[in-house]
Computed example of a mutant assay.
Amino acid sequence: MTSQHQNNTGVGSDWEPDPGVVAFAEQLGVPVSLELLELALTHRSYAYEHGGVPHNERLEFLGDSILGQAVTVMLYRDFPELDEGQLAKRRASLVSTIALAEIARGIGLGEQVRLGKGEDLTGGRDKASILADTMEAVIGATYLSAGPEQATALVLRLVDPLVNNPERFGAAMDPKTSLQEAAALIGASAPVYDIVSTGPDHNRRFVATVTVGPYTATGSGSSKKHAEMAAALEAWTDISARTS
């Protein structure tokens, strides 16, 4: 039996918060537990390299549900003119990997994520899938710390800048077509995708790299389709930002 008491966040009784986590909590503006927030910022690559310490995937699971509910209710209330199909498209866009990554970049989340060395060296702090998953985990930590009202308020504050941006809805819903259109606008050939897979058959992960003229982007997912879509979204966002 270890002499160090462990609480349900997986940290010991002598734990002290990282100054960066404290500053990030203040930036969020919600009364979130610092222990839970640090857990939310811990990627599985970090956990693997540090003896299997707890990581953020359970909080991510929770945050995904909280995010979806908050966005669904907001859209239903604020857009009475939209039918079910239009509401579904907007919701899918606002909770998409690219939207969450955009939000995460806006609040400097990447700087605070605890990553393994390999993931850090390969650009993990700006990888859309890692940023999106961590953003969901932060929402989950807020829910457990401060309750549903505070978590919902945080979600709505974070997504508010994206709600009335119609350009992003098309890209998030059909990123491969949007990327083809962007390629045509810059006079580049059609996007070319290259896919590799890792892991056992029951837990296979796919990584897609897409090349469009001078631009390249990567994306990952549980299927080839999802990996290609994530890569296309990354490329579309990059091209749009550089050519706008």
Rank of each mutant, 00 (worst) to 15 (best):
residue 196 V to F: 04
residue 218 T to M: 14
residue 181 E to L: 13
residue 88 A to R: 08
residue 86 Q to P: 03
residue 33 S to F: 00
residue 76 Y to D: 08
residue 97 T to R: 11
residue 190 A to T: 15
residue 178 S to I: 08
residue 200 P to K: 02
residue 113 V to I: 15
residue 231 A to L: 15
residue 178 S to R: 10
residue 243 T to V: 13
residue 33 S to T: 04
residue 170 G to I: 05
residue 10 G to V: 05
residue 148 P to E: 14
residue 226 H to L: 12
residue 48 Y to N: 15
residue 165 N to W: 13
residue 185 L to Q: 12
residue 165 N to I: 08
residue 124 G to T: 08
residue 102 E to V: 04
residue 37 L to S: 11
residue 133 D to L: 06
residue 127 K to G: 00
residue 15 W to K: 00
residue 146 A to F: 02
residue 238 D to M: 14
residue 3 S to K: 05
residue 43 H to A: 15
residue 107 I to E: 12
residue 139 I to A: 03
residue 89 K to C: 02
residue 91 R to D: 01
residue 130 I to W: 05
residue 193 Y to I: 14
residue 37 L to I: 04
residue 182 A to Q: 10
residue 43 H to L: 01
residue 72 T to A: 06
residue 135 M to P: 01
residue 62 L to K: 02
residue 195 I to M: 04
residue 79 F to Y: 12
residue 158 L to E: 10
residue 18 D to E: 14
residue 158 L to H: 07
residue 158 L to M: 15
residue 61 F to S: 11
residue 39 L to Y: 07
residue 94 L to Q: 02
residue 49 E to L: 03
residue 3 S to T: 09
residue 47 A to T: 08
residue 194 D to T: 14
residue 138 V to C: 04
residue 76 Y to N: 07
residue 28 L to P: 08
residue 11 V to S: 01
residue 61 F to N: 04
residue 154 L to P: 02
residue 41 L to N: 04
residue 177 T to D: 09
residue 185 L to A: 13
residue 199 G to R: 12
residue 77 R to Q: 00
residue 210 V to A: 13
residue 45 S to Q: 03
residue 205 R to D: 07
residue 181 E to S: 09
residue 50 H to Q: 12
residue 238 D to I: 06
residue 165 N to C: 03
residue 171 A to V: 15
residue 223 S to N: 14
residue 198 T to D: 15
residue 89 K to P: 00
residue 138 V to G: 10
residue 30 V to L: 08
residue 46 Y to R: 13
residue 163 V to F: 07
residue 210 V to P: 12
residue 193 Y to C: 12
residue 114 R to S: 03
residue 141 A to M: 04
residue 77 R to F: 03
residue 244 S to D: 10
residue 38 E to P: 10
residue 195 I to Q: 10
residue 161 P to L: 09
residue 209 T to M: 11
residue 73 V to L: 00
residue 5 H to L: 11
residue 229 M to T: 01
residue 42 T to N: 03
residue 161 P to S: 13
residue 103 I to N: 01
residue 55 H to G: 02
residue 218 T to A: 09
residue 144 L to K: 03
